[in-house]
Design a protein around this nucleic acid. Structure first.
Length: 762
RNA sequence: GCCCGGGUGGCGGAACGGUAGACGCGGAGGACUCAAAAUCCUUUGUCCGAAAGGGCGUGCGGGUUCGAUUCCCGCCCCGGGCACCA
């Protein structure tokens, strides 16, 4: 056999000692006649080409049909972690798939760059959060680039960029104009040692401050709210039309928590001028009320407490003030410590009987009226409380025959209820409410679990709320032409965590826009969820200096055709973004027709390691960087796609980069003509079977892409490659034309998953 | 506590009422090699059996169905969210 000089392509993982992959020249020469292409060199080459050619940049007047594909923009935590890899692999797959299908795909990326970690780092190191954040963005951007995910970087948005902050503040002011932003007092976590407000995250499980160890209490502050509850019904109703995972839609519905029922007054025994208003969804059970409960922070607590009970009530209220809502609703610990008698009685208007009023930790001021009638016969929590405090239990709904449970919450004929007896639940509810209304002591109401959105944060590293306080004019909006309000750079971070804005005279001192007199700036900044509630709109028109975005341009791209991100955002972020879209349409910033931001949503599962969530704070991150260097981005992308259903959580232990690396090597050999023998001949049955199998692969993968069943699509590719190996290795060999068709077709289908190797081979 | 998910070989998973375990990892055996790596081929739920074959198997207990991993009810366990982490 003549020994001639040839170019041999080999696709093997490079050793970790390879020089920096990005700067590798593209080929290495091994010996005199073999040229090896490494995945790393190939990937760097294609990534540079996509970037330099602007292959995936789209203009707003692109004639192709528009498709807006968006992944939730990341908080810049430093180099990318596997959660980013997973999310952006799914997103990139869709971007490439839709682009191949002839769409103008808007694929933007940005950074959710305000937040607590940068501020904590500033307090620890004294470095201003901005350079810290910019540095982390650079790291994350580089990691994302090595994954081969393609974005139109001309549209990059950063929450902390003044050109973005300006419009975040502008939107706040439009909300204020429309009456959708307002101030009221609300409790915060207060650390008496640090003299500062703490985030929930900064409060340890035992209720102490993570910095000082002091017991954290609640303190009321005047704070800004968005009136999201004004949209409760629309937010609820519009869920039906969304192409979202059912579980997310269910969580959103439950979060809004619409419930129909009644409110009515319970008059204090012997003091007709004092009444406690209660909300109930079960007015049909009112005859079974054997006590009432008000929240420990209820304004009437002082009024209701008798002298004899004052000490016990005070102690109870003090203890509850150190507990979180979750703790208060957890039925752990001794039940008899969960409430206290106020000493007062109220009259049950249905039967005229006096029943005791208690405080209990499980009744929250933020829900309903902050007070309930307790009906232990038909509510398990009331049942447990009644047992612990030796209160009577009267059933007013007859349980089914053979009932051995405690409280019965189902339907059944009313009993022990005078004029309601025998009625089924719905009828009895209606009758009871009619009676309350006729008596003039109550009415039919709808209650929501959803609360208004508290957006004030007592922090430095966030977008300042553009308001000043004038002694004569109160809270006054900063005029549009003075935006953005920027925090100063010459600030000192205190070890207590207190916002430096509160002590910066140059920032604080200003003039009233109304009267020109001296005024003080608001020092609170906005919740970072405000930034993320409209960034998808800014992406459509990211460099607009005259408006947050041009309404016509926004209409061209919106709503987002495919949104994807982690399941952990199923409620808050998505609810707030939906609210902003509706509210902005109503204040005229977004065309009226756009009521929902995200047509189709995909939520991916989380990455866990040893069954705990993989996160920087837990210190169990597995960086993708070593995989980029060793196996290459395509192998890592494929490993994420193959490990299991995208919506399921992934235990990192189960991710096998070896299988997908090996598969890509087999694809490479097949594509490079290194497998078996090829011959030119007329079609045989074996050839026709390969052609049929290739068409079956097209149908299968197309369907599985549509269903997000990427793991089985990868299995399909593997089966195809295995079959082609068998085919080419038979004695008869493979027909050249047939094998080329089978391989080329597969490469085209595989391209959105593994863009580098398929581009290199194609 | 409330709300939402999940539980299938040694491991990740497949099977959208119809042959449980596709595909991959790991294991075993073989080919190639002086040898190793890599690669290629075969095999691999479990128990009994030399084999043929058979028993058992989708967290637990019931139910619907000709037929259930799949649908229903009740448990157990694991994970996520709970409004100031993002």
């Amino acid at each position: 056999m003549p020994c001639r000089r040839s170019t041999r392509l080999s696709y093997r993982p490079a050793p970790l000692t390879l020089p920096d992959a990005a700067s590798a020249a593209g080929t290495d020469t091994i010996g005199a006649w073999t040229t090896v292409t490494t995945p790393q060199a190939s990937e760097a080459k294609w990534q540079a080409m996509w970037r330099d050619d602007g292959t995936y940049e789209v203009d707003n007047d692109d004639p192709r049909p528009p498709f807006y594909c968006l992944c939730m923009y990341p908080y810049p935590s430093g180099a990318a972690h596997q959660g980013h890899v997973r999310n952006y692999t799914f997103g990139d797959l869709i971007v490439r798939h839709k682009t191949m299908g002839g769409h103008a795909v808007l694929s933007p990326m940005g950074f959710d760059s305000f937040g607590l970690p940068a501020e904590n780092a500033a307090i620890k190191t004294g470095v201003h959060p901005r350079p810290f954040t910019d540095d982390r963005i650079a790291q994350l951007k580089a990691s994302i680039g090595r994954l081969g995910a393609v974005y139109d970087w001309r549209r990059e948005v950063r929450s902390h960029d003044p050109s973005y902050m300006r419009w975040t503040q502008w939107i706040f002011l439009r909300m204020l104009d429309a009456g959708l932003a307002y101030r009221k007092r609300a409790p915060v976590n207060w650390c008496p040692g640090c003299q500062t407000v703490l985030a929930n995250e900064q409060v340890l499980a035992d209720g102490t401050c993570e910095r000082s160890g002091d017991v954290v209490t609640k303190r009321d502050l005047e704070q800004w709210f968005f009136r999201i509850t004004a949209y409760a019904d629309e937010l609820l109703d519009d869920i039906d039309g969304l192409d979202w995972p059912e579980r997310v839609k269910t969580m959103q519905r439950n979060w809004i928590g619409r419930s129909e029922g009644a409110e009515f007054d319970l008059v204090v025994d012997g003091r007709p001028e004092v009444a406690v208003r209660v909300f109930t969804t079960r007015p049909d059970t009112s005859f079974g009320m054997t006590y009432a409960v008000v929240a420990p922070e209820h304004p009437l607590v002082g009024d209701l407490t008798t002298a004899g009970q004052a000490e016990a009530v005070a102690a109870f209220v003090a203890r509850v003030s150190t507990e979180s809502e979750v703790e208060r609703q957890t039925a752990e610990g001794p039940v008899d410590k969960r409430g206290v008698f106020t000493g007062s009685l109220v009259i049950n208007p249905f039967n005229g009987k006096a029943v005791p009023v208690y405080l209990a930790d499980y009744v929250l001021m933020g829900y309903g009226t902050g007070a309930i009638m307790a009906v232990p016969g038909e509510d398990q929590r009331d049942w447990d409380f009644a047992k612990a405090y030796d209160l009577p239990i009267v059933r007013t709904v007859a349980p089914p025959e053979g009932w051995e449970g405690e409280a019965y919450t189902g339907d059944g004929p009313a009993m022990n209820s005078e004029w309601l007896n025998g009625m089924a639940k719905d009828e009895a509810v209606a009758k009871a409410i009619d009676w309350l209304e006729a008596q003039g002591i109550g009415k039919r109401t709808v209650n929501y679990r959803l609360r208004d959105w508290l957006l004030s944060r007592q922090r430095f590293w966030g977008c300042p709320i553009p308001v000043v306080y004038c002694p004569d004019h109160g809270a006054v909006a900063v005029p549009d032409d003075q935006l953005p309000v920027l925090a100063p750079d010459d600030v000192e971070f205190r070890p207590t965590g207190e916002s430096p804005l509160k002590f910066h005279e140059g920032f604080l001192a200003t003039t009233c826009p109304t009267c020109g007199g001296p005024a003080t700036r608001e020092t609170d900044t906005m919740d970072t969820f405000v930034d993320s509630s409209w960034y998808f709109l800014r992406f459509t028109d990211a460099s607009n200096d005259n408006a947050p975005f041009d309404p016509a341009t926004a209409t061209h791209w919106l709503p987002v055709d495919q949104y994807s991100g982690g399941i952990e955002h199923a409620i808050l972020h998505l609810m707030y973004a939906r609210f902003f879209t509706k509210a902005l349409a109503d204040v005229g910033a977004v065309p009226k027709g756009i009521r929902e931001p995200f047509t189709r949503l995909f939520t991916q599962g989380m990455i866990r390691l040893d069954s705990t969530k993989m996160s920087k704070s837990k210190g169990n991150l597995v960086s993708p960087d070593e995989f980029f260097v060793r196996e290459g981005a395509d192998a890592l992308r494929l490993a994420h796609l193959f490990v299991g259903p995208p919506q399921d959580d992934v235990d990192w232990e189960g991710v096998s980069i070896d299988g997908t690396t090996r598969f890509l090597q087999r694809v490479w050999r097949l594509g490079a003509g290194e497998v078996g023998t090829t011959v030119d001949r007329d079609e045989t049955d074996a050839d026709r079977e390969v052609i049929r199998a290739t068409h079956r692969l097209i149908a299968r993968v197309t369907d599985e892409f549509e269903r997000w069943s990427y793991n089985t699509a990868v299995a399909g590719f593997m089966e195809h490659v295995n079959a082609l190996y068998k085919y080419a290795q038979t004695e008869a060999g493979a027909r050249t034309e047939t094998l080329a068709f089978a391989v080329d077709t597969m490469l085209a289908l595989l391209a959105p998953m593994c863009p580098h190797i398929t581009a290199e081979l194609y």
